[in-house]
Simulated assay, not measured.
Amino acid sequence: MPRKNNRQKKLHVKKGDNVKVIAGNEKGKEGRVLAVFPAKERVLVEGVNMRVHHDKPTQENPQGGRIEREVAIHISNVMVIDPSTGEPTRIGRKRIEEDGGGRWVRYAKNSGEIIDK
């Protein structure tokens, strides 16, 4: 559902995160996030939610045919995997003070380990 104001919603996953699917037909599968679509609140996870796509012949693919591709799933159906334990965890945000300024980082709620390096 699109947001009414102009601010983009903060999401708990980013491109490149390792996530586990916690709901739906693909429950239990793990993969790396290939793309995040904040406006639609969906993510594309490598090897998860594969669907057959029918491609027309092009110069790059002169044969055309049926190709399996990942399809985006709702962001609420995935949890980030804690780097220290390998289990799914909720994500928190905290400010780290360094070199006179601070920056916001994501951390795993279970272990407290920082996810953003």
Rank of each mutant, 00 (worst) to 15 (best):
K4C: 03
N5Q: 03
Q8W: 01
K9R: 10
K9F: 04
K9I: 06
K10R: 05
H12A: 07
K14L: 03
K14A: 09
K15P: 01
K15S: 09
G16L: 04
N18S: 09
V19K: 06
V21S: 07
V21M: 08
G24V: 03
E26G: 01
E26S: 11
K27L: 07
G28M: 04
G31H: 02
G31Y: 06
R32T: 15
V33M: 10
P38R: 03
P38M: 06
P38F: 15
A39P: 02
A39S: 15
K40Y: 02
K40M: 13
R42W: 08
E46L: 11
E46P: 09
G47L: 05
G47P: 01
V48T: 06
V48E: 10
N49S: 07
N49G: 10
R51W: 02
T58R: 00
T58A: 00
E60K: 01
N61R: 01
P62C: 05
P62I: 01
P62M: 08
Q63A: 03
G64T: 00
G64R: 00
R66P: 01
I67H: 10
I67Y: 05
E68Q: 11
E70I: 01
V71C: 13
A72E: 15
A72G: 11
I73H: 08
I73T: 12
I73K: 06
I73Y: 12
H74Y: 10
H74A: 11
V78D: 14
M79G: 02
V80N: 10
I81C: 08
D82V: 02
P83F: 07
S84M: 07
S84Q: 12
S84L: 13
S84C: 04
T85H: 07
T89Y: 03
I91T: 09
R93K: 12
K94W: 10
I96T: 08
E98K: 04
E98I: 10
G100M: 12
R103P: 04
V105L: 08
V105R: 04
R106Q: 13
Y107G: 03
K109D: 13
N110R: 04
S111W: 02
G112Y: 03
E113W: 01
E113P: 00
I115E: 13
D116Y: 05
K117Q: 10
K117N: 13
